[in-house]
Write a protein that binds this DNA or RNA. Structure first.
Length: 258
DNA sequence: TGCCATGTTAAACT
DNA sequence: GAGTTTAACATGGC
């Protein structure tokens, strides 16, 4: 067992936020003794406040205090460390000191939300959540018949927490071409899409915890298809224009002419 | 060394 | 105003 408590990691997709949430669980119920950093928030509003709850929605982390909530989003380059600071002071965006430890956040978006966060987010859209509702996801997909599968998976209102890696792996797993439009996906295939968005996210979580995530990528960043050994296509697909890896031989484009 | 990426927002355009 | 494009953020792996 390797102790990685001081280790900084980059963050982006939903499962990584779950890992962080678990790591900082010891701070739940604890008082913030000091809050520092270059985030453009009033640090005084955090000082001497208790962390009432630690929650997440997709790629966002929430530290719930009395009346306000600190929202942290790691964007593309965000990272954190626990207990031990590994970067020079000025790069620390937010540092929270507790009696039982310290957490540091880097290169992330930090905001204070005044509203009750329950009314701000659709918690049933979070693929990692107990409140995840596949039926509701299906309904939302039906409302966007023109949307390509690759764009739908990245839509945080439908699949909160899904990122580009998960997108590519899910589509490969279910043999679906990224540019297939929702209206053309057969019902059973659509069910697979919705279910795999959640399933793969939990596999991602498990592998990430064991530091073997990359090893399990089937198509993301790959050059050759593991199934048919034909070249994997790399294309910036859909309205999101994100890197998409897929096999035209194995992943079916609907409607199909064949 | 330079390019590019697990992401999102907001300004700058048409 | 709407929809679309671009910039900004600013780290680290290859």
């Amino acid at each position: 067992m390797v102790c990685l408590i001081n280790y900084r990691r980059i963050m982006p997709e939903g499962p990584s936020i779950i890992i962080l949430k678990e790591l900082i669980l010891p701070f739940k119920g604890k008082k913030i003794l000091d809050a520092t950093g270059n985030a453009s928030i009033e640090m005084d509003r955090l000082k001497n406040k208790k962390i009432l709850d630690i929650r997440s929605w997709g790629k966002q982390l929430f530290l719930v205090l009395d009346k306000i909530t600190v929202r942290i989003h790691f964007l593309l380059f965000g990272s954190y460390s626990l207990h031990e600071q590994v970067k020079p002071d000025k790069s620390v965006r937010l540092c929270l000191k507790f009696k039982n430890g310290t957490v540091y956040f880097y290169t992330c978006s930090v905001r204070i939300l005044e509203e009750n966060i329950d009314s701000l987010y659709d918690w049933s859209a979070d693929v990692m959540s107990d409140k995840w509702n596949p039926g509701k996801a299906r309904k939302k997909l039906k409302d966007h018949p023109q949307l390509m599968a690759c764009d739908a998976l990245l839509d945080q209102q439908i699949f909160s927490g899904v990122g580009n890696i998960i997108k590519n792996e899910v589509l490969y797993r279910i043999y679906l071409h990224p540019e297939t439009r929702i209206q053309h996906i057969p019902p059973r295939k659509l069910t697979e899409l919705i279910n795999e968005a959640r399933n793969y996210s939990f596999d991602f979580l498990k592998w990430k915890k064991e530091y073997v995530l990359k090893k399990h990528w089937l198509v993301h960043t790959k050059k050759i298809c593991k199934r048919c050994e034909l070249p994997v296509i790399k294309k910036y697909c859909g309205i999101t224009k994100r890197r998409t890896f897929f096999c035209v031989n194995c992943q079916r484009l609907y409607p199909s002419n064949v």
